[in-house]
């Protein structure tokens, strides 16, 4: 299946991992079961280099300009942005709630830190999500092992640094198990 593998172009700067962009939008009429979640989420493209990342990202609408109940997901290639994925099952996520108006800038800084390998937690990072909601927006970053406190603390501290979060920003860690309940 390597035929379709995305790889860096000549002269481009490779990323440590390939990443896939996904988009989902909740249609109000459907229940939010995991089946309808899977139906509502679409892969929109995979990037393997810094240059491919920018070409792709620059064509996307900014999260702050989205309306309604929508999410962008950027996950390592091969990992679905779902709790049920093998890589996410034992994992969790850091959540940051943002007042309206901040999502575009914070999302960009968070995914730049991710694709640039700023978190220094080995293979732990799975992906990142920005969730656009009516009253607020939510950023989250998912990792594989929810009970590894060294890892989760390091992710939290890196997020604080790269997003330049005020020290009173509330960050919440949720295991995917909690979310499933």
């Amino acid at each position: 299946n390597n035929r379709h593998k995305v790889s860096p172009g000549a002269g481009e700067h490779p990323l440590q991992y390939n990443y896939t962009f996904w988009f989902s939008r909740r249609t109000p009429s459907r229940p939010s079961s995991s089946q309808s979640y899977e139906q509502n989420i679409r892969q929109i493209g995979t990037v393997a280099s810094v240059e491919q990342f920018w070409r792709f990202y620059s064509h996307l609408i900014r999260p702050g300009d989205l309306s309604g109940h929508s999410d962008f997901h950027l996950f390592k290639e091969g990992i679905k942005p779902m709790w049920e994925d093998e890589c996410n099952r034992g994992g969790g996520k850091w959540i940051i709630r943002l007042r309206k108006g901040l999502a575009s800038r914070f999302w960009e800084n968070m995914i730049l830190a991710m694709v640039g390998e700023q978190f220094m937690v080995g293979e732990e990072i799975c992906g990142a999500v920005v969730s656009v909601r009516f009253q607020e927006d939510i950023l989250s970053i998912w990792n594989r092992t929810s009970n590894d406190q060294t890892t989760t603390s390091r992710i939290r501290d890196t997020l604080r640094r790269v997003l330049n979060l005020p020290s009173n920003t509330i960050m919440e860690y949720k295991t995917h198990n909690d979310s499933l309940r």
Partner: peptide
């Protein structure tokens, strides 16, 4: 193995470099 690490400044510079366009 070696990790490929880029800081934000470098990534933003790549955005405006000719190969990215």
């Amino acid at each position: 193995g070696t990790r490929i690490i880029y800081d934000r400044k470098f990534l933003l510079e790549c955005r405006s470099s000719p190969v990215a366009k």
